[in-house]
Design a binder for these strands. Structure first.
Lengths: 202, 202
DNA sequence: CCTGGAGGTTAACCATCGTTCACAGGAGTG
DNA sequence: CACTCCTGTGAACGATGGTTAACCTCCAGG
């Protein structure tokens, strides 16, 4: 039923053409976790999705938790790194930086709907140490946005900028909910426009 | 640790002052489900939260699934009914109707953060029959928004309006992520402004 | 009184599922 | 050929947790 071929998220595997078994597992797990929630997905399900039995997973990961942890850590790191890159590449103008951040987030959300879903749904299923690490990365990513928003409007306090950043995330990350309504390009321009309007409304 | 007193969501119990045991359970369950996810919360946990052992739950609900189902159904019904009311009360002007819908959603999200969280996180944990019913209600609520957005901009097609509606939901429902940053009133005006700007950006 | 239902309790049952174990095949490598 | 990782399998183990059973108490109403 689920189209596994072209609908794959792009952010997990570095080797896109011949991904290692390990990457295949992470990929399949992300898809399944997004659809049903990590707790509802069995190790056997993940195995079956890559044509292997459940226990084979343990040749590649310490356990189910370790899979989820690595998944969420990678996403968070990728967002933070990507966000910083884009800001740095956008020059000194805060308005341009904001546009770059929005473009990046839209791109990521449209390219990796499963990861976006898992990212904020299954954080609570992580062991406290991993969860803390993920939250730390998330916080730093938020602060990248807050810094840009604060420079854009020097009068606003940081708390308001944080609320604003989360609101823009929510707006952009709504894509999994409206999947299949429009083609990717149209959705991208629509969300970009809305996000910029929302971020700018003071 | 969790402040159970004043932080209660308001939309679940009709009898606010002396809620029946049944309502207490639903209330506590919503809180716990929001914090940890329905699957991570045991029947014993829910019982303990209202000062009762786990199996006592079965005097009031057919099972854990039934609890979650009733919770999600009530939320969906309340949103749909509330949305329709507000639109009807806002007169014929689509701009006024949109403002009314936004105010309603902001109000609901700020008043019921736990319900908002459970609403889209745990839908997948429902039996298919219940899930279908909830999705039906959600869809009808979305269509209330789509109708208003479509009247506001007759040139736009329904699919784009749907994407737009989901984006505004995502924006407003981000409140659980930015809890504690600002006081409720400030958050409300901020989100309302952003939502209106986003919905209007064409 | 005493009867019956509502609401609780503890103990037990049982399915699910993550994890481990013992073993097997294959691909290099000496 | 032998030796050894690497990756996989099927079976078994153990914990967790939803659910049921048996029993108990309280209290309203005849």
């Amino acid at each position: 039923m689920t189209t596994t071929g072209p609908a794959r998220d792009t952010a997990l595997h570095a080797d896109a053409d011949r991904p290692s078994r390990r990457e295949q597992i992470l990929q399949a797990a992300a898809q399944l976790f997004a659809e049903r929630g990590s707790r509802a997905v069995g190790v056997d399900d993940v195995g079956a999705a890559v044509g292997v039995t459940g226990p084979a997973i343990y040749r590649h990961f310490a356990g189910k938790d370790a899979m989820l942890a690595e998944m969420l850590l990678r996403i968070s790191e990728r967002l933070l790194a990507g966000g910083r890159e884009r800001v740095a590449a956008a020059g000194a103008d805060p308005a341009a930086q904001l546009r770059a951040l929005i473009a990046f987030q839209v791109e990521f959300a449209l390219g990796n709907p499963a990861l976006i879903t898992v990212h904020d749904r299954d954080l609570g299923s992580l062991a406290e140490a991993d969860a803390a690490q993920v939250r730390r990365l998330q916080r730093r990513y938020v602060e990248v946005w807050v810094a840009v928003l604060a420079r854009l409007h020097p009068a606003a306090d940081a708390a308001a900028c944080r609320v604003r950043a989360h609101a823009v995330f929510g707006l952009i990350n709504s894509t999994p909910h409206s999947a299949g309504q429009l083609d990717r390009a149209a959705t991208a321009t629509l969300l970009t426009g809305m996000a910029e309007a929302a971020a700018r409304a003071w």
